[in-house]
Simulated assay, not measured.
Amino acid sequence: MSMLEGAPWLLAHKSMLQTNQPQKVSLYGNDYVIWQDKTGQVNGLPNICPHMGAMLSEGWCETEADGTSAVVCPFHALEFDRHGCTILPGTDKKTLPQLKPLDLIIQGDFIWSYGDYQPKIPIPDILEQIAGKYEFIGFTANTSVETDLRSMLLIMHDYNHQNGTHRDLFEITEVRFEKFIDNGYHSEAFFNTPTAPKTFWEKLKQPNQFLLPEVIQAHLENYFPSLVIFYGNSPFGKIAQCHLFVPESLTKTRTYILLFGEASNPLAKLLKNQFLGLSKIVVEQDAGILNKIYSDAPQKIKLNNEMGMDWVNRNFTTWEQPRI
């Protein structure tokens, strides 16, 4: 089972980090603590105190005169700066690094990491492009799912599951697939999904339906393995819904959504929480179906339009092959 070591992973958007509030993230079976200081600098260390193993993410931060901060162990209040150095009680000198900092790559508000593995593919610049074009609405559905990375990605690239997994949410009547463009570790999919017609009074019972067009015109842009972007239109403007994936361990995958929008209706900003709520439901439903699948069951039936799933499987297979 592969976690695709050497891929770039978006650990967080800066909006997900409160100033001087330690937060735990996991990658490749290792736990880290990350925090953002008053200067906006983001730091990362292994989450285990080298004294007696306390979780640093359960501690707090102490700010220095220059605005930078150290993370403090909740057990004995040892302070560790961003280099992993501390000052032992009864001394006034910093130790040598006791913890190896996690190598973070900060691009604007985006916090990437290769988890200290040698990079195999570059960080995609599409999120910075989206941030320059659309307004950032927020993040939602930051969830750890008890599933391996491959199973998670297969669900996200299954273009037939909307009218099953998301039946109650979208009431999609069919999937009209148009085309799939395969560019190696980058791909795009285009399809339309008509939804069941609703009266005004029926929509009042399910207010999320006011956010949806009668035909969802889906454009998915995929960056293997960590990012799926849904570009869509609503009665209130355009959205770019960015689904992120992080392999926490062999059997656990974290997913979350960064939502961007371009309003065409003054009401759009008032509906910010509704759009985030709709996105959260999508993730919850995808996570829910993953807990209802026998992962070792053989696939005896193949449906039309499974090109996205084939793309995922091929890239997993070729990932470990030598690059020329």
Rank of each mutant, 00 (worst) to 15 (best):
M1Q: 03
L4I: 07
P22N: 13
K24F: 00
N30L: 09
V33S: 11
W35G: 09
Q36W: 03
G40C: 11
V42M: 04
G44Q: 03
P46R: 10
N47S: 07
N47Q: 02
C49H: 03
P50N: 07
L56E: 05
S57E: 10
E58H: 07
E62V: 09
A65N: 13
L78M: 11
E79W: 06
G90F: 01
T91D: 06
T91K: 06
P101G: 06
L104H: 04
I106V: 05
W112Y: 09
S113Y: 00
Y117H: 11
P119Q: 11
P122H: 07
A131V: 09
G132N: 09
Y134H: 13
T140E: 05
A141V: 05
S144W: 02
S144I: 04
S144F: 00
E146I: 12
Y159V: 10
Q162M: 14
N163F: 03
H166G: 06
I172L: 12
V175G: 00
K179F: 02
F180H: 08
Y185V: 13
E188C: 04
N192A: 15
T193E: 08
P194V: 15
A196P: 00
K198W: 01
W201F: 08
E202A: 08
K203R: 04
K205T: 07
E214D: 15
Q217L: 12
N222C: 10
N222I: 15
Y223C: 08
S226L: 02
L227C: 03
F230W: 05
L250I: 04
Y256R: 14
L259Y: 01
G261C: 05
P266K: 12
K269D: 15
L271F: 02
K272S: 04
Q274T: 06
Q274F: 03
Q274G: 01
Q274P: 00
G277K: 05
S279H: 04
S279Q: 10
L290P: 01
Y294H: 13
A297P: 04
I301W: 02
K302Q: 11
N304D: 10
G308Y: 00
G308F: 00
N313V: 14
R314L: 11
N315L: 09
T318S: 14
W319Q: 07
E320L: 14
